[in-house]
Design a protein around this nucleic acid. Structure first.
Lengths: 178, 178
DNA sequence: TTCCTCCTTGGCATCGAGTGCCAAGTTAGC
DNA sequence: GCTAACTTGGCACTCGATGCCAAGGAGGAA
C-alpha cells in the first residue's frame, strides 16, 4: 500500500500500472490481486466494508435524536479509523481520477444499502413506497459529505477533520433550508 | 444499440461481451469502439452530454422560483428526450450491474459540474466556501432522483414518468422536512 | 528428525475492454 | 473517370483481472 500510494501521488492513479506497483513492492502480480481485488482497493482499503460499523454507531444513537445528527455521529466512526492525512490523500486522488471517483461512489452505495433500513425504521416511510425515504436521506447525507470533501480538498484540507465536519454541516444546512 | 440492449436484457450486462454485441450487430469490433467509447455508452447513449441542455432549461426558469422546483423542471427536459420504456430499461439494467451503476453516477457528476455554478448564483454561498452549496444542492436532487428511480423500477415502472416525478417529489419532501 | 498437511506464493495462460496504426474500400466533389 | 476525404476493418498491443497448478515454507504429530 505504501509503495502504491507513493507512486499514485507522484505519477497519478491511471498512469501507474499494477506492474509498477508490484515491482516497487517486491511481490508478484498474482499475489497482489489476492490481497487487493482491484487496483482501486489499494486506495480505499477496508473502507467499503465499514458499512456495518457505521450502522452499529447509528443504532447506538437515541431514537428521538434528529436523523441528521444521528447520521452525522454515525459517520463519525470513520474519522476514528482514518487519519486526516489519509483522508486528505484519498480526497486528492479521488478528485483527479474518474476510476477512483466511480469506486468511491460505489462504496457509498454499499453503505447506503446497509444504512437505509435503519434510517427508515426511525423516520417512517411517510406514505411513500418502502425504501424510498431511507435511501433518499442517506444518499443526501453522503452527497453533502462529498460536496464538503471536495471543498475541503480545494482549500488544502486545512483545519483537519473538524473543518470537514463543519463543511458537511454547512452543506446539510443549505440543503435543508435553501 | 438495439442488438446490444436485447442481449443485455436477456443475458445481463457484464455477461455480454463486446464481441457478442458486434457479432449480433454485424459490424467489426473496431468500428464499435469508434461509435461507443465504452461498453457502458451503449446503454446511456448521449445522456451524459445532456448537461448543457439541462442548464439551459434551468436558466429559463424565473430567478425567484424556489431552487428545488426550478431544478425539478430543468431535469424535466430529460423526459422529453426519452421514452418511459427506455427509462425503465435503463433503470432495470443499472440496478443489476455495478459497472453500469458506476457509469451512471459518473454521468451525474458531469451534470453536477455543469449545473452547480448556476444553482449557486441563484441561492448564494451562504458564507460557505465557493462551490459547496451549489454542489450539495444539485447532488441532493440527483440523490433523490436516484432513490425515486430505484423505487420506481421496484414497482415495475408503473405509472410512467409522471409517477417517477411524483416519487422524486416525495423523496425531496422527506429530505427537506424529515 | 521425519513426515504429512495447510497455507502462501508465483508463474503461466487466458479473457475482456480499450487504443494506435495502417491498409482497403466507399463516398463525394469536380 | 479521377482525386480527395471519410469510413471500415484487421492486427497487434496494453492493461486489469481470473483460473489453474506447481513449488515452497510453517507448524504439528509421530
Amino acid at each position: 500500500m505504501d509503495a502504491a500510494l507513493a507512486l499514485f501521488l507522484e505519477h497519478g492513479f491511471e498512469e501507474t500500472t499494477v506492474d509498477q506497483v508490484v515491482a516497487a513492492a517486491g511481490i508478484s502480480r498474482r499475489s497482489f490481486f489476492r490481497y487487493f481485488g482491484t487496483k482501486e482497493d489499494i486506495v480505499f482499503g477496508d473502507l467499503a466494508e465499514q458499512g456495518p460499523a457505521i450502522l452499529e454507531a447509528l443504532r447506538e444513537r437515541p431514537d428521538d435524536e434528529p436523523i441528521w445528527e444521528a447520521l452525522g455521529h454515525a459517520f463519525g466512526v470513520l474519522t476514528t479509523r482514518m487519519s486526516p492525512e489519509r483522508g486528505a490523500m484519498i480526497g486528492r486522488l479521488v478528485t483527479t481520477s474518474p476510476a477512483l471517483r466511480a469506486a468511491h461512489l460505489e462504496k457509498h452505495l454499499r453503505w447506503q444499502e446497509v444504512l437505509a433500513p435503519e434510517v427508515e425504521r426511525r423516520v417512517g416511510t411517510g406514505g411513500a413506497p418502502a425504501g424510498l425515504v431511507g435511501e433518499a436521506i442517506v444518499a443526501t447525507v453522503l452527497a453533502c459529505l462529498d460536496a464538503a470533501s471536495a471543498a475541503w480538498v480545494r482549500q488544502g484540507a486545512d483545519g483537519g477533520l473538524d473543518e470537514l465536519r463543519r463543511l458537511t454541516y454547512a452543506a446539510l444546512t443549505a440543503v435543508r433550508s435553501g
